[in-house]
Write a protein that binds this DNA or RNA. Structure first.
Lengths: 324, 324
DNA sequence: TTGAAAGCGCTACCAA
DNA sequence: TTGGTAGCGCTTTCAA
């Protein structure tokens, strides 16, 4: 009875006598009364919490700038609107449909979807709003998608290398990323950009290596070795740089390398990494805000938000060594 | 009724006829029935979720290795035990006692406590287990604390500098960290280590600067300028390195700099940063596991877990320039 | 303006 | 072994 009043006192339309309200507040203070948020969420079917799903969770944080920028963007948005963010293992390991609609989350921020049949189905069946990050348009279920313009990014990178004189260019990706929608989009963008420059490509121009065990050799051997690499991520690019150093391969003299994301991390590598840029933090911020506004407005448009890429030229690209 | 059976069917002691159970499972599958986890949590007063509290949330992720290492540790532990982790703005902004016991969390991982009167009180009043990270023993409420041995770390750093010939050594910290328990512990450790080397110190030997607006000048001016800095964090140390470069101050020739944490990030600065090491990821992993086991066992010892520090000597320290 | 009652979905307990 | 019932703490609605 006191309880119900207190809650009213907290609510917007206070229809309680000033005196009563005062008493209630006082007593509540003395008792250190705390409304049980779980019960409230349960009653209202609203948790004010967003779930974060990554199709692949390895180690979350690494030294590259991606996760830091991403989390900063998400947190800025959730903090402003007083939503909580939950990172949950089951979201990744179990088949996603088991976990999406269990009442815990008001919405889901789904990163780097792999669009397996199962995840696609559970996404489209979801009863709560879902927004995807790093998901190119066209593919997959009809939910709002946030993605950089991968075609543009790869076009900039390829054209930069071609202008420098490269013709033997390869794309490098790791096995976890390769099946994701963005992995496929970048590979496609690479082939397209190469064709745009009049260079034929084949599947031999795409390498799929584990980030930490890259193996530079195949491309440096052979009669017509690749002279430039475009790498899916900063981190993989940086690990290639390090490997090259160990093998006595000079970058950019012997091999040009371009990474993807272009955070401040690229200024810390040696040589400093030329990289395609995408506004990760802004994208994460926008995606989270769109998710929240869909949760609150219950409107649910399904369009793609595409962000332009840039190319930040640093020190890891140069003309190919002339082979006389 | 079907519901209750299904739930029994999921429980450990299945006391249901095989046939009935089969039917239930089939129907549940057809209906894509999902138990509502919110209701379950509500009923059991158990959410299987841990809350993460930082006394100061600025930007969560930066390029230094701290947050990445920390989150890796926490995630490894929560993933193994199927707990979720929630980062929640209110946990920081509101007075903490409003939020601790609202039923959302089974336990709290509290990082870098500032031990204000209010937070201390709400911590000791908490009805759920709390574990503190980066909280030296002795101070604050009686909960399990995980902390590196700051005295040891600063002793190593000061002795290293003294061996190189430095006597004018300062400690640098930022205004957000300075009031935290660990900030105070490191400042105290600095004074103690200096005394241990027979060097008098005063409050003039501790600088409190904003991380990104450090201002190297004061210490390089004066008749008896400091020749070496021990800095609270990697990130602030790195920002000092960068500032020094801009001012034409050579490190380590003109000024020696030591940071704190010694993650891989220290290998990416120029010059590579000499740093005190603490096993952040391990500490976060252990702290989370202790928290979880306290949640499940409902036992709640209040001891401190102290981790030894090391000193990783890289390139940012050298003998002081001789001033003839 | 205030009080009383119903019910969110689940689990624990008790009775059959 | 099974089915029924109560109730977690809150909000919403309806009656006084």
């Amino acid at each position: 009875m006191a309880v119900s009043k207190v809650l009213h006192g907290k609510g917007a339309n206070v229809r309680v006598g000033a005196e009563t309200a005062e008493t209630i507040r006082r007593v509540a203070g003395e008792l250190r009364y705390q409304p049980n948020r779980l019960a409230r969420s349960f009653r209202q079917q609203k948790t004010h919490t967003i779930g974060l799903v990554f199709s692949h969770f390895g180690r979350i944080g690494e030294l590259d700038g991606y996760f830091a920028a991403f989390l900063n963007g998400v947190m800025s948005a959730t903090f402003q609107s007083e939503y909580g963010l939950t990172i949950c293992p089951k979201l990744v390991k179990l088949s996603a449909n088991v976990v999406i609609n269990d009442g815990r989350f008001d919405g889901l921020l789904w990163c780097k979807p792999d669009y397996t049949a199962q995840s696609s189905e559970s996404i489209s069946r979801s009863e709560i709003p879902i927004v995807m990050m790093h998901a190119p348009g066209g593919l997959g279920p009809e939910v709002p998608r946030f993605c950089c313009d991968n075609e543009m990014g790869l076009k900039l990178a390829v054209e930069h290398l071609v202008e420098l004189g490269h013709t033997r260019i390869a794309f490098v990706i790791d096995p976890f990323t390769q099946p994701t929608s963005e992995g496929r989009a970048r590979i496609a963008g690479f082939h397209m950009a190469m064709q745009g420059c009049g260079i034929e490509t084949s599947t031999n121009d795409v390498y799929c290596w584990d980030v930490d065990h890259s193996g530079l050799w195949p491309m440096m051997a052979g009669k017509s070795p690749h002279t430039a690499l475009i790498v899916f991520s900063e981190r993989q690019a940086a690990s290639l740089l390090k490997e090259a150093e160990g093998l006595g391969i000079s970058i950019p003299q012997d091999l040009s390398v371009i990474g993807y994301d272009s955070t401040a991390y690229c200024d810390t590598t040696r040589p400093r990494l030329t990289a395609i840029s995408q506004p990760i933090e802004q994208m994460a911020f926008d995606a989270t805000n769109v998710l929240i506004s869909y949760i609150e407005a219950e409107q649910y448009p399904s369009r793609s938000f595409i962000y332009p890429c840039g190319l930040d030229i640093r020190e890891s690209t140069a003309r190919p060594a002339s082979r006389c």
